[in-house]
């Protein structure tokens, strides 16, 4: 079977790639495009390490085919930091020691970014429910929740 030609926008830049019909978007990002910031924890939608935004919507890139990215705007962890440096969420994760091994971190940051776009001032329970699809085996979650609260506060009242 011929490989499929796909055009999409990834982190603001037009991208073309070839993929097999069976490849997930996660496989394409990591293996075809070298964007290895997006992690694979399970490959079955359970862990959230592969979280990306597709047309602004938070999804698991392991639950989507690469060819479904055709015509879509994809944002990955590589696109989160801006010209001025790290995103407030990235800083907050560092300052609050919200990561240990770090494999879950890109997924948490992408998912939290989507959360703060929808709920700029989420309470703890909103954060916990929103992030229930992101698993972390190291931190025990509390530091992650605090980092998200911290980032939310800084983003709504920039110093």
């Amino acid at each position: 079977m011929a490989r499929l030609h796909v055009e999409s926008t990834i982190n603001g830049e037009a991208q073309e790639f070839l993929c097999d019909a069976s490849q997930s978007l996660l496989d394409v990002l990591r293996d075809e495009l070298g964007l290895t910031g997006t992690k694979e924890g399970c490959g079955t939608g359970d862990c959230g390490a592969c979280s990306v935004l597709v047309d602004g919507r938070l999804v698991c890139s392991c639950l989507m085919l690469g060819v479904e990215a055709s015509g879509a705007e994809i944002e990955t962890i590589e696109g989160i930091a801006g010209e001025e440096g790290l995103h407030p969420l990235q800083n907050a994760f560092l300052e609050n020691a919200a990561l240990q091994c770090g494999i879950c971190t890109p997924g948490f940051i992408v998912a939290s970014k989507a959360l703060l776009e929808k709920h700029p001032n989420p309470d703890e329970s909103t954060i916990r429910y929103w992030l229930a699809g992101n698993l972390c085996r190291c931190t025990g979650y509390d530091k992650i929740i605090r980092a998200v609260q911290d980032a939310a506060a800084k983003m709504s009242h920039p110093a």
């Binding site: 939608g45 938070l58 698991c60 998912a111 229930a132 699809g133």
Partner: peptide, 9 residues
């Protein structure tokens, strides 16, 4: 049904 991510699709 599933997480925020799953519900997105």
């Amino acid at each position: 049904i599933g997480s925020t991510q799953v519900q997105g699709r």
